[in-house]
Design a binder for these strands. Sequence first.
DNA 1: GCAAAGGTACTCGGATATCGGCTGTCCGAGTCTGTTGGG
DNA 2: CCCAACAGACTCGGACAGCCGATATCCGAGTACCTTTGC
Lengths: 156, 156
Amino acid sequence: MRLGEGVEWGLHCCVTLGWLEGEGPVSIRRLAAWFDLPQEYLKKRLQALARAGILTSTPGARGGFALARPPERITLMDVVAALEGGEEFFRCEEIRQRGAGAVGARFDGPCGIAAAMRRAELAWRRELAAQTVADLMAGSPASAERARRNYARLGG
Amino acid sequence: MRLGEGVEWGLHCCVTLGWLEGEGPVSIRRLAAWFDLPQEYLKKRLQALARAGILTSTPGARGGFALARPPERITLMDVVAALEGGEEFFRCEEIRQRGAGAVGARFDGPCGIAAAMRRAELAWRRELAAQTVADLMAGSPASAERARRNYARLGG
DNA sequence: GCAAAGGTACTCGGATATCGGCTGTCCGAGTCTGTTGGG
DNA sequence: CCCAACAGACTCGGACAGCCGATATCCGAGTACCTTTGC
């Protein structure tokens, strides 16, 4: 099992957009050049973040993407759910109700296996929800300064 | 992102094998009939569990699969790792080091985003490691009795 | 000087191609059990 | 009665096909800013 690359891209883009706050919207072309990523596919992923209300997108010349709210109010869970669809890892197909093993059984309560997997999944989601983009920005303070410098250079 | 169905199959098989302890090895044909699952593919998944030391497989006539250790010592993490490869959800591709955004940067420490994702993933793994097959067996006590009855009927 | 027209840069959404992994099936080889036949 | 040979049941490992989702690209349409043109 594996998360899509779009999660890494989206998180890095959110952090960078946080650092570039105040510079106006950042075009997808610049963001793709920023991380050397395929422009068209990165656009698709950021559009998903915009649909989820995490980014704002302004069309037209000098348009682009920006954070829709302050980075303290964007959790990693928000980003992951927007990019991965928010579905659960484990989908219970209720195989306990099928086949010869189910003969004569009553299935009142929920499947214990599904409940156990859900517990683990909730722990994951809780941990993701406890961390925000602002935390990630604070993780490497020197980078904010460099981001502004590099963005000015890229602007040409 | 989604776990393979094999995880659900493997967990249900482990619980059932726990209930049928003492009946000798259970053949893949019976297990497939037990849950109405494709026999050949289920075999592949159980072979993976055997390679991981969770199940024992005895060849020959009247052979089959059985738990390799008492169910209290088989965690959900063991089963998931054996069936899903134990790789991490999030693989950091170090895109922070690529493109125009990386100009003039030094990347001493680990990537903060990777560290944050790893924290969440560890919470998931910890939760899975805290639950055993024995816990799942205890979840529906009436089922153990029924399992033995149905297994005797299936035996013919 | 000012307003209208056009060009440019950008996003949005859909359509399409490609690739890898999960699902599922099949087959040959090896191993153990139970039976059968000869001494 | 005993031992050897055989048949059956089962696992192991590899090879292979089909399908779906992730990745990647392209195009037409819409929108905002900027420049040019005409008065």
